[in-house]
Simulated assay, not measured.
Amino acid sequence: MTRPLDGVTVVAIEQAVAAPLATRNLADLGARVIKVERVDGGDFARDYDHVVHGTGAHFVWLNRGKESIAVDLKTPEGRDVVRRLVAKADVFLQNLAPGAAARLGLGADDLRATRSGLIVVNLSGFGAGGPMTRRKTYDMLIQAEAGLIAITGTPETPVKTGIPTADIATGMYCAQAILAALLRRWRTGEGATVEISMLEATVEWMGYALYTRMYAGTQPERMGLGHSSIAPYGAFPTRDGRILIGVQNDTGWRTLVTDVLDASALARDPRFATNIQRVRNRAECDAAVAARTSHWSTADLDERLAEAGIPAAHLKDVGQVVNHPQLRARDRWREIGTEHARVDALLPPVTFADFEAHMGDVPALGQHTRTVLEESGVDADDLIARGIAAQA
């Protein structure tokens, strides 16, 4: 079947996580993504580690299905290569240091002056304008600036999230914006200049915590596995471990205590009649639930909760997720190539009934330099011999 983005070409000067995630999503949907890298090492995510048979785990995750060219953007010839590529592309995306693209002559105004239909996407930490415009940043710092660290962790210890949440939020909004811009261009012929700020993407994900602070005047507490607005919600003891339970409405509460925990008296306790009352009396509510959950094994209680329609989950480690029975049953793993070995990669979460995501290989640095340069009418041998370009 036709891939949704067949025929779309994206040129990206990208590194780290946010921008590569956005373009990988486009590659999965069939776009041709040409990744422009430095000749001296390329995207620095290549060397965060070498745990995937010699290739970095971040890089394998974020760069499948792309073509890699390595050129020196400090040279006029290197910049000319990028301009030639962009002249035939639909989208140009960059997440260089603030102001760097414009200094290289690759700013939106320059590129769209003769191609109004081009979509130019600028991804940065803080966006254009404001006192922090020129500051470099990365995921943990954005989590701190956005308030995410302030509400994550335990009452005693704030922590960042275990995954790069700010990067992922930004990459997802970036891909969404590109798809919207492409749709508008197909309807009207009009291109776009798009700006994505990591800070603004992450603050948007703060959601209810922002509104709680603005309108209740209170800082949401760090709750560990709990939830500041819902009870019971968290980890509860079983005979052989723990299980996560989340009850999000009063009907669910009555079902939990009556049909699962065999404690119907709790359904009539006025301290727990509504979620607001359960939150006010959280310690007593959690203690009452814990006193009952400890009567069953984790497996048995999980089965009872599932039969009653109460949301619950096991606390899985990452190794258990790799072999998650739901992912295996739904055949969600595919084999892709890297420069050193074949590896397993997870299909993207969007499933089309008539199309499977394009799970391309992860490129070596400069793997496609010669081919792409020749397509662009450039003397590849000359640039490679002079060190302006590099071929894997």
Rank of each mutant, 00 (worst) to 15 (best):
Q391C: 01
T152D: 03
T298W: 05
A380E: 08
D139T: 09
R292H: 13
Q143N: 05
L256F: 09
V279D: 05
P349A: 15
R254L: 07
M172H: 10
D331Y: 00
Y48C: 04
I230V: 15
Q320F: 03
A287H: 11
A89C: 07
A180C: 14
L106E: 02
P164D: 09
Q248Y: 11
L104M: 15
V362Y: 08
M359V: 03
G78I: 09
A31R: 00
L305H: 03
D109G: 07
V52R: 07
L261D: 09
V91T: 12
F352L: 13
E156R: 08
D361N: 13
A150S: 15
R187P: 01
P348R: 11
W61S: 13
L183S: 13
R332P: 00
L106C: 04
T154I: 09
I178M: 14
K88G: 13
S68N: 08
E356N: 12
L301V: 10
A89I: 04
T133P: 00
Q367Y: 00
R271K: 11
A231T: 13
Q320D: 12
T202Q: 14
V60G: 02
D80K: 00
V279N: 02
V318P: 07
T2R: 14
I13G: 03
A283D: 15
W186L: 12
K74P: 00
E14A: 13
F355Q: 13
L199G: 09
Q248C: 11
H227I: 03
D110I: 10
T212V: 07
H324Y: 02
R184H: 14
A263V: 09
Q15R: 15
A177N: 12
I336R: 01
A144G: 15
G127T: 09
R83G: 04
F92K: 13
I388A: 03
N249Q: 05
D259F: 01
L183E: 15
H340K: 10
A231F: 07
S297N: 14
L73N: 03
R254D: 10
F59G: 05
L199Q: 10
E14K: 05
Q320T: 03
L5R: 03
G105S: 02
E339Q: 12
M172V: 15
Q326P: 03
M198K: 08
V8Y: 04
A201Y: 06
G224V: 06
L210Y: 07
D331P: 00
G78N: 06
R83E: 08
A312Y: 02
E190S: 09
L244F: 15
T157Y: 08
H314L: 13
V52D: 02
L62E: 04
P325A: 02
N25V: 13
T251V: 14
G147C: 08
S197K: 08
P76G: 12
D49R: 07
A306K: 14
Q248M: 13
G217W: 10
T165C: 11
D382L: 14
A235W: 01
G171W: 05
I168S: 04
A22I: 03
G30Y: 04
F92V: 12
